[in-house]
């Protein structure tokens, strides 16, 4: 027998996400979140697991070949039936394709083969600074500027911001439904990614300070 999800209970059990993803820690730990997600019904759990697998894929190995990218996209579109998950995957793919296009153009390469609705637009407006998409996707300009300035953290921030804003806008339309939970997970993942990024930077800074102190100590003893 297929169990169903009690959306009211599950949504109410999740702590509010912050207004912005630029916070120092996630409002709920991964372990706690996984425990809450045990309230999901069988069918919903399958969809959530599909989306979580995509997120894991999305986070790992950012420098994939176009063929791998295309093949994974085709596989996802074949297996995912939920319209919102398809929309979320498409959005992430669009962001990847546009970022790839900006990077390739900066390196003097040809337009990306990529996937998604903007591939042809990018090809036709390859010489346009923002591929003619600045009005529709205002975050492209900021992303391009960050890429040109080689500010890695700013690039990551712009990418996360573009996705975050999209999820926030979508989540306004849903209350106490499966879509609410999916969008919560999507936004939680961004907060988690940002806090981990921050953690990595903190670790790097700490290592640098430690090296400076140790070097200073060595030169003092010498």
């Amino acid at each position: 027998m297929t169990s169903t999800t009690n959306y009211y209970q599950l949504v109410a059990s999740l702590p509010h996400l912050p207004v912005t993803f630029e916070v120092s820690r996630v409002p709920i730990t991964r372990i706690q979140l996984e425990q809450r997600l045990k309230m999901l019904g069988d069918d919903d759990r399958i969809v959530v697991e599909q989306y979580q697998r995509f997120l894991v894929w999305d986070r790992q190995h950012p420098e994939r070949t176009d063929e791998e990218f295309q093949s994974e996209y085709d596989r996802l579109m074949r297996t995912i039936k939920n319209p919102l998950v398809r929309e979320m995957v498409n959005h992430r793919m669009d962001v990847r394709t546009i970022t790839c296009g900006l990077r390739r153009r900066r390196l003097g390469l040809s337009p990306p083969t990529g996937v998604g609705q903007y591939v042809d637009v990018i090809r036709s407006k390859w010489r346009d600074a923002d591929f003619g998409l600045a009005t529709k996707l205002p975050w492209i300009s900021a992303l391009r500027e960050a890429l040109e300035a080689k500010r890695t953290l700013a690039v990551e921030r712009q990418l996360l911001l573009a996705t975050w804003n999209r999820w926030v806008k979508l989540s306004d339309a849903y209350h106490f439904s499966f879509e609410t939970i999916l969008l919560y997970l999507a936004r939680w993942e961004i907060v988690d990614r940002w806090t981990r990024l921050d953690e990595t930077l903190g670790q790097q800074k700490f290592d640098q300070l430690l090296r400076e102190v140790l070097d200073g100590h060595a030169s003092f003893n010498a």
Binding site: N6, Y8, Q9, V11, A12, S13, L14, P15, R36, F176
Partner: peptide, 13 residues
Amino acid sequence: ARAGMAASGALLD
């Protein structure tokens, strides 16, 4: 039932 389910979920938080 709707409000009660939300209340019992909120009790976890």
